[in-house]
């Protein structure tokens, strides 16, 4: 039992870490809406996997990566109305997901395979999935290190980077590809409807904690990992659905970071207006 819990915990740390990191990049590169669509495409892919009797992780991966690449290519061709295209993909993916779940052979919503796709499950973590996560982490880190100066240039100023000849479209496409890969790898843990909370909550919390870009990346990764691992432990202890618990924990962390920021800023203002210091 402990071995199985250790496996799930390790997967949670890796998933959270990866989601926090990719969340930082998609936010800084202003492709959040796109990644949101990719997250829902992953859900549609996982649901299609249910009908076709495939492993939902792999079908989610195929659909998420394909939609990330297609969206990325469309975005290099289309200058206007990009948000609307993203939203169209999001609505279509959600509709496909619901239809696929309806059409799948399983009749009861609480059935294990559907529950994994929708809400995530502790039991769904296997050694194979852990290796997949490790491999994703390895390739992602390799990419970030290999193109560090180009990515840094884009994070500093996308317009300048593009005007100077950096292949901004290619890097956006790669980031979306990783978003698709990371989302589908994490799907079994958090479930399709909640996976994007791990993508956005840690980065939103990191923005409350630090204003420095590199610190935000670090904090976002750490918060992602701690949200996923502590959510998993709480869900195990209280026998709650794992995906929802992780989403709740990450929301609580975000709320705490926001409150802490308000308190710190109020204290700072009080200090500045203190007559002794003033």
């Amino acid at each position: 039992m402990l071995e199985f819990l250790g496996l799930a915990l390790l997967a949670a740390v890796l998933s959270g870490n990866l989601c926090g990191a990719i969340g930082f990049y998609v936010q800084r590169l202003k492709i959040t809406t796109l990644s949101f669509s990719v997250a829902h495409a992953a859900l549609a892919g996982a649901s299609i996997g249910l009908i076709l009797n495939l492993d939902p992780v792999y079908s989610a991966m195929i659909v998420a990566v394909a939609s990330a690449l297609i969206l990325g290519v469309i975005f290099t061709r289309v200058e206007y109305g990009r948000e609307l295209i993203s939203m169209a993909v999001f609505s279509t993916s959600s509709a496909i997901a619901v239809f696929a779940i309806y059409l799948s052979n399983v009749r009861v919503l609480a059935t294990a395979s559907i529950a994994v796709v929708l809400w995530g499950s502790l039991l769904a973590i296997t050694v194979e999935k852990l290796i997949l996560l490790l491999l994703t982490l390895f390739i992602f880190v390799l990419y970030i290190l290999a193109y560090k100066i180009q990515i840094d240039s884009m994070l500093y100023d996308v317009k300048m980077a593009e005007a100077e000849g950096i292949n901004v479209q290619m890097h956006m496409l790669i980031m979306l590809f990783f978003a698709g890969l990371i989302i589908s790898s994490s799907l079994r843990l958090t479930g399709g409807f909640l996976v994007f909370t791990l993508l956005y909550n840690p980065v939103a919390a990191s923005f409350q904690i630090s204003r420095r870009a590199h610190m935000q990346l670090l904090v976002s990764s750490i918060l992602g990992a701690s949200s996923a691992s502590s959510g998993l432990i709480v869900s195990y202890i209280l026998d709650w659905p794992v995906g929802a618990t992780i989403a709740l924990v990450s929301s609580i962390i975000l709320l705490s970071a926001y409150i802490a920021k308000i308190i710190v800023e109020a204290a700072r203002r009080r200090c500045l207006s203190c007559p002794m210091l003033g």
């Binding site: 180009q150 100077e164 420095r212």
Partner: peptide, 18 residues
């Protein structure tokens, strides 16, 4: 709060050639 140093910002100009 932008923490890139001036040296770093100038260095980023060489990014497309790397």
């Amino acid at each position: 709060f932008e923490t890139y140093t001036v040296r770093h910002v100038i260095r980023l100009g060489f990014a497309p050639y790397k």
